[in-house]
Design a protein around this nucleic acid. Structure first.
Lengths: 218, 218
DNA sequence: GTTTTTGCACTGACTGGTCAGTGCAAAAAC
DNA sequence: GTTTTTGCACTGACCAGTCAGTGCAAAAAC
């Protein structure tokens, strides 16, 4: 469970030294604990203990428990969007279609969730809550991720590859949901399945080859 | 937000009088509060207050806060599965195809979520958590709902209407996720859209008419 | 038909424990 | 010598769950 092993996050860190390493340890400890138990049920003492750090250090590095959590969210979604965009770019280089790009994004999503299941869990659990301190952070962060999918859909409609009947924002949300829930279910209830199995099932749905007559395109 | 107006719960009540009415009030108070804030962040005092009842009454009616929550979950998922099954049955009466049945279930899902958004929120937020007291309750309850979808998929494959390439459990999970997330997103971020809009977008995806050439069946 | 008892539903003050956050001096790392 | 971390005692708010007691209607006893 390494929520961000990268040393180069645009805004956040800079001077990657001891401080940054401590923050990283705290992120990792917090993400699993909060995914398992929820934000309120997770104590700062627990987080500090799992990170192998004194409680005071938590407060030396973060203003409060919720700030720690908010930064964790931003951090994680940054990784996700980067990974989605990378998938799109790679498809573009290879001259793939827009459906190929969507397919590649689904796979990238699955890989991400496979790597950071706790983060995904926690994201889903908090996203649709209202009345919470970090509501606005989540809105921004959600929009970032969904926007990548919306862009690809819009491109596809523009170049005629996708039907102009498509409702971009709703379809994007549905696609994200499909991947998110299928992946979480895979992890939680059918962990013996391979990533390829899950990807194949989602691909089939995306490409409309669910009907038995094989009418859908390939 | 009437989570269950029935007077005949097998084990629980009998003599549906004052007691049952109180429980109902507590369900309704708890479901919204927990959806907004999460289980741990919601206090029993808050629930009691919103239900217009003394704290002691909560404990007179439920063994503990978690038991209240568990019964709430069972209650809600009961309503959902009933509604899904009803949609399937109605399709059967009208001699609809299996894809029609899936489509009808999606709509039923959307209607349910539109009626009980808080319940849905809370369900999604808790489903993939691990290490929680009500884990097993959730597993059972999830299986009930997903099973309805799986049944329809299996029927469709058996009668050749759906491709036998389909992976039943994974596809069922993906479909449920699609509806769940699209609906929650609709409620939370695009509430101005109509149920028909959302349903149309999901239908398009289900029937594989996303590609611009209209190859998919209708 | 009046008094007493019983059982149910509910009440709200109280308790024992928990937890976010603080303060600070000393040590370690840089 | 400055920054970061440690260890630990402390505080005050908050909260799940308890319990002695109330209100009331129907039954039992007289």
């Amino acid at each position: 469970m390494t929520i961000g092993a990268m040393e180069s996050s645009r805004t956040v860190d800079s001077g990657g030294g001891r401080r940054q390493a401590t923050r990283q340890k705290l992120y990792e400890a917090a993400v699993t604990l909060i995914a398992e138990q929820g934000f309120s049920a997770t104590t700062v003492d627990e987080i500090a203990e799992r990170a192998g750090v004194a409680k005071g250090t938590v407060y030396y590095n973060f203003a409060s428990k919720s700030v720690l959590f908010e930064e964790l969210l931003r951090h994680g979604v940054g990784l996700l969007t980067a990974s989605l965009r990378e998938a799109v770019d790679k498809t573009d280089e290879e001259g793939g279609s827009r459906v190929d790009a969507l397919d590649a994004m689904m796979r990238a999503g699955l890989v991400f969730i496979g790597r950071y299941p706790s983060f995904t869990q926690l994201y889903v659990a908090e996203l649709w809550r209202t009345n919470r301190a970090w509501q606005s952070t989540l809105m921004v962060v959600r929009q970032q991720a969904v926007a990548v999918v919306e862009d690809v859909l819009r491109d596809g409609i523009a170049n005629g590859e996708l039907s102009d009947e498509i409702d971009t924002p709703l379809t994007a949300a549905a696609l994200v949901g499909m991947v998110l829930v299928a992946a979480l279910d895979w992890q939680a209830f059918q962990p013996q399945r391979s990533l390829d199995d899950v990807h194949a099932a989602l691909s089939l749905l995306l490409q409309g080859r669910v009907g038995g007559d094989g009418l859908g395109r390939k």
